[in-house]
Design a protein around this nucleic acid. Sequence first.
DNA 1: CTGTATCCTTAGGGATACTG
DNA 2: CAGTATCCCTAAGGATACAG
Lengths: 145, 145
Amino acid sequence: MKKDELRSDCPINYALEYLGDKWTLLIIRDLIFEGKQFYKEFLTSKEGIATNILSDRLKKLEAQGIVVSQVYEKQRTQKIYQLTQKGRDLIPLLVEAIIWSAKYKQGLNVSDEFIAKLASDKEQVITAIEAHIGTDTFSANRAQP
Amino acid sequence: MKKDELRSDCPINYALEYLGDKWTLLIIRDLIFEGKQFYKEFLTSKEGIATNILSDRLKKLEAQGIVVSQVYEKQRTQKIYQLTQKGRDLIPLLVEAIIWSAKYKQGLNVSDEFIAKLASDKEQVITAIEAHIGTDTFSANRAQP
DNA sequence: CTGTATCCTTAGGGATACTG
DNA sequence: CAGTATCCCTAAGGATACAG
């Protein structure tokens, strides 16, 4: 199969081909839930991504329009990575993944409060997550890289 | 990394490790949306899964409690595969994948009506999908394998 | 520090023959 | 027909050195 050629026109297959490797969604997770925006920050994730893989995935995510990068003005040797709307629209999918995993696997790092909140008003939670991605309020809580 | 050993306790990572290959979710898709229940039926999917891969994935899905199999009484040389509740609980995740893909990729095989229905009452659609999985009404519409 | 390139190993997967 | 086993090849990914 050539790249850029889908195996089928099935929407699930499409998502799988673009997101269904072991790293891509973890980067998106970091952008959404961890507020990470810099190369080095992604490198520090628990799962331990290699530099070449990270570099490759960031490039692909940008090519697919899920992420945009720009020079970080306060530190012009660095780039800042941010989700596009296409990327933010993956929040519901990730939320469903969290719900499913939390339901069926003990000992994962998910707070009961978060699950309870989702159960009572999922839409509101998703909206709230989306709203505070990349805002100053949010960034202010993060250590500078 | 040894198998059976998660890279992290992140719920998204968990889902990824169990579902994040190029075939597993397609089998689950066939069980949910195509009403497929027999080995041969999965083999006929558009993406063209190989027999060894299918065999391997069915075994893993059963080991994980996402699928159960039993002898098909009407034809005792065959087994019938069905989703457990753990498997049916993946419907929302698949639905979100469909929504996302349909929004950002033209030409996929998704009806506008389906998307419209989802937009107006997602929960109801999910309930309806779950309700008719494996029912006789549903199976009756299928050709026997 | 942000990447990129290289080297090397392994796991995933396709084709296909085969067994019950 | 259901499922397994084998062979083989490629792509994914880890380690690490290197460049801007």
